[in-house]
Deep mutational scan, measured.
Amino acid sequence: AQASVVANQLIPINTRLTLVMMRSEVVTPVGIPAEDIPALVSMQVNRAVPLGTTLMPDMVKGYA
């Protein structure tokens, strides 16, 4: 199954992502693919992302 990017902590709005904030997990619905984690580093989220939330393309500025 495809692993997705999941928030490893609460990520406040406009925060630049770092590796420690993200983990890969097989979840439904599928979000951003886990292999994109390196590309997500330093991108900003456009909303607060609670712990355990799957990151979707529309949550990350410049990803989609």
Rank of each mutant, 00 (worst) to 15 (best):
1 A>F: 10
1 A>K: 10
2 Q>L: 12
2 Q>T: 14
2 Q>R: 12
3 A>M: 13
3 A>G: 13
4 S>L: 01
4 S>K: 00
5 V>A: 08
6 V>C: 03
6 V>Y: 02
6 V>I: 12
7 A>W: 03
7 A>R: 00
9 Q>F: 10
10 L>K: 13
11 I>S: 00
12 P>H: 09
12 P>L: 09
12 P>F: 07
14 N>V: 03
15 T>Q: 07
15 T>R: 06
16 R>I: 11
16 R>T: 14
18 T>Q: 11
21 M>L: 05
21 M>I: 03
21 M>K: 03
22 M>H: 00
23 R>C: 05
23 R>V: 06
24 S>Y: 05
24 S>I: 10
25 E>T: 08
25 E>Q: 13
25 E>C: 04
26 V>N: 09
26 V>I: 14
26 V>L: 12
27 V>Y: 02
27 V>E: 01
28 T>K: 07
29 P>K: 06
30 V>F: 11
32 I>G: 02
34 A>D: 08
35 E>S: 14
35 E>G: 15
36 D>A: 14
37 I>C: 04
37 I>K: 08
37 I>F: 03
39 A>R: 12
39 A>S: 07
40 L>T: 01
40 L>R: 00
41 V>E: 14
41 V>G: 02
41 V>M: 05
43 M>E: 06
44 Q>V: 07
44 Q>C: 04
46 N>E: 08
47 R>K: 07
47 R>M: 08
47 R>D: 05
48 A>M: 14
49 V>E: 02
49 V>Q: 02
49 V>I: 13
49 V>C: 04
49 V>P: 02
50 P>E: 15
50 P>K: 09
51 L>S: 12
52 G>C: 03
52 G>R: 04
53 T>S: 13
54 T>R: 04
55 L>T: 00
56 M>H: 13
56 M>W: 06
56 M>C: 03
58 D>K: 11
58 D>A: 13
59 M>P: 00
59 M>Q: 05
59 M>S: 09
59 M>D: 14
59 M>R: 03
60 V>W: 01
60 V>N: 02
60 V>R: 01
60 V>E: 01
61 K>G: 11
61 K>P: 14
63 Y>M: 06
64 A>C: 05
